[in-house]
């Protein structure tokens, strides 16, 4: 199950610079830790984040083991058209978690 917190305005004026913030619930297990009995805990991180606006990529990032649990990314974009801002986080497990939010640009 995807548990994400997205903070982006619901409306914006055309040409306005808006801030988008996205946080995903994820342990970001580094692979460097050991659990009970000294057994290594396998690495399990989100390694790729992509944000699209009406299907067009506007921001992406590669993530690494030193990034804390519940990766939080904040970035800005210029409001162009009304539509859907979509978020995708891909993990070491090969799975992609998604979330989206609607925006009206006037």
């Amino acid at each position: 199950m995807t548990r994400a917190l997205i903070n982006a305005p619901k409306t914006a004026r055309r040409g306005e610079i808006i801030e988008i913030r996205a946080m995903l619930a994820h342990p970001m297990e580094t692979g460097f830790r050991t659990g009970t009995m000294g057994k290594a805990i396998p690495r399990d991180i989100i390694n790729r984040f992509v944000c699209t606006w009406n299907g067009e990529e506007i921001f992406s990032a590669d993530l690494f083991p030193a990034i804390a649990a519940n990766p939080y990314l904040a970035f800005t974009a210029v409001a162009t058209d009304s539509g859907t801002i979509a978020f995708a986080w891909t993990g070491d497990d090969g799975e992609t978690r998604t979330a989206e939010t609607e925006i009206t640009v006037t």
Partner: peptide, 13 residues
């Protein structure tokens, strides 16, 4: 800020 407080994940769960 409830949008940056990771504790909110537990509340939502």
């Amino acid at each position: 800020d409830d949008m940056s407080n990771p504790g909110m994940f537990a509340v939502l769960d």
